[in-house]
Amino acid sequence: MSQAAMQALIVESAGAPFTAVQLPRPVAGPGQVLVRILASGVNPLDTKIRAGQAGHARHPLPAVLGLDLAGVVEAVGAGVTAFAPGDEVYGMTGGVGGLQGSLAQYAAVDADLLARKPAALSMREAAALPLVFITAWEGLVDRARVQPGQKVLVHGGAGGVGHIAVQIARALGAQVYATGSAAQKAIIEGYGATAIDHATTSVAQYVDQYTAGEGFDVVYDTVGGTVLDDSFLAARTYGGHVVSCLGWGVHALAPLSFRAATYSGVFTLLPLLTGKGRAHHGEILREAARLADAGKLCVRLDARHFTLGSAIDAHRAIETGTAKGKLVVEIAGN
């Protein structure tokens, strides 16, 4: 009997548009879950992989892209007891490291990478969450170990990782401040942070204004470049901690060392690339579901809707900087 087929999008070569294809429907192997995908989150990394500019993602083309998904369990493989057919799930499950991505009707994924979808969130909202939440959580909780009452500064507080980091830090009981543009002030304040206009306020000015010159207990850089250098200048003397998920380039550590402060990098893809630590990603997404269902976490979505047929438009929105929140491709026919 022939294997069932599914619709999917593949990228044949760097910079190429998507090609709609029919692929064999995957089968859940031992430790895997077959997910019927209802929504595929789109991230800036997806666009870089399609452009051939993300060697660190180790995703050779041609390939199916898409890191994040939300959907319904269709079947489970041998040894899987945490999920059953019909469960609504979400996760960051592929699209790097040669693992099939989520721009398809089905994916067979490692059960450890999944969690049950928050009841309070739609499939679109859930699909937008995994990569950015895991990245924010690993920085604030796993690396910086944020405590109640600490002062936390998030650079890029209206961005994908940034607006989630603000909400996590607030939920942990921190006093939260976030940089952004003047146009983003209302967005940042809507998530409970004090907004800082990065264009009109120097590091020295906001460190003096909000910490009496002492510096912030934790600084999370979600922007990279010179903002990471600014982060070193904003860390609290004796014990301040800087975290970055975009620690590219060459940076002088002396300003941080002179404060007796510390630095950690976050590389969210490691469990997908190495196979190690995947269960922790599932644990983190269970924390996300707990916060969302408690009304302490929401995700900012772009109002536009995309399908497999218009997925390239979602990529172009990210590439041109016109996205107004997270973008999601809805998988028709599922």
Rank of each mutant, 00 (worst) to 15 (best):
E287C: 08
H281D: 11
D217A: 14
D221Y: 13
T81M: 12
G265D: 04
K324H: 15
G321M: 12
L38R: 14
P44R: 07
K296G: 06
I49G: 02
G333E: 09
L327G: 08
T307I: 12
V161Q: 03
A54D: 07
E88R: 12
V328R: 04
Q22G: 10
E88G: 05
V64G: 06
D68Y: 04
L131R: 00
E287H: 11
R300W: 12
Y191E: 05
L273W: 13
N334H: 12
T322H: 12
A14W: 01
L61W: 06
G282M: 00
V146G: 09
H251G: 01
R170A: 09
D46N: 11
G101T: 08
V154H: 05
P30I: 12
E283K: 15
K117H: 07
L131H: 10
L121T: 03
G149P: 01
V299H: 05
D221W: 13
F18V: 01
G192D: 08
Q205F: 09
G149W: 10
W137G: 04
H163C: 10
G282T: 05
T226W: 09
T135P: 07
V166Y: 00
I196V: 14
L233I: 05
F232M: 06
K117L: 01
G71L: 05
R236G: 01
A178L: 06
A120G: 07
P148S: 06
A127E: 01
A8D: 00
M6Q: 06
D142R: 15
A107T: 08
V64M: 02
S122R: 08
L301C: 02
I164G: 09
R116T: 11
M92S: 07
H241S: 09
Y177C: 04
Y191L: 09
A174Q: 04
L291Y: 09
I37F: 04
G29V: 07
T81V: 14
T237F: 15
Q184F: 09
T47C: 13
A111F: 14
P118V: 10
V152C: 07
R124D: 07
V42F: 08
T262Q: 03
P24M: 03
D313C: 07
A128Y: 03
A317L: 11
L65W: 06
R278Q: 14
A165I: 06
W137S: 02
V33R: 08
A165S: 02
D293Q: 10
Y177T: 02
R116L: 14
L233H: 15
H198N: 06
K48T: 12
V243E: 03
L61H: 03
A8W: 10
G247T: 03
D87Y: 11
A16F: 00
F18L: 00
H305S: 14
V223Y: 08
I10D: 02
D46P: 01
I164Q: 00
A165D: 05
S13Y: 12
F216A: 06
M123V: 09
Q7M: 13
G94F: 11
A292G: 04
F18I: 04
G190V: 05
A128N: 09
H305F: 13
L34G: 07
F306G: 03
F216D: 01
P30Q: 08
A261N: 06
F83D: 04
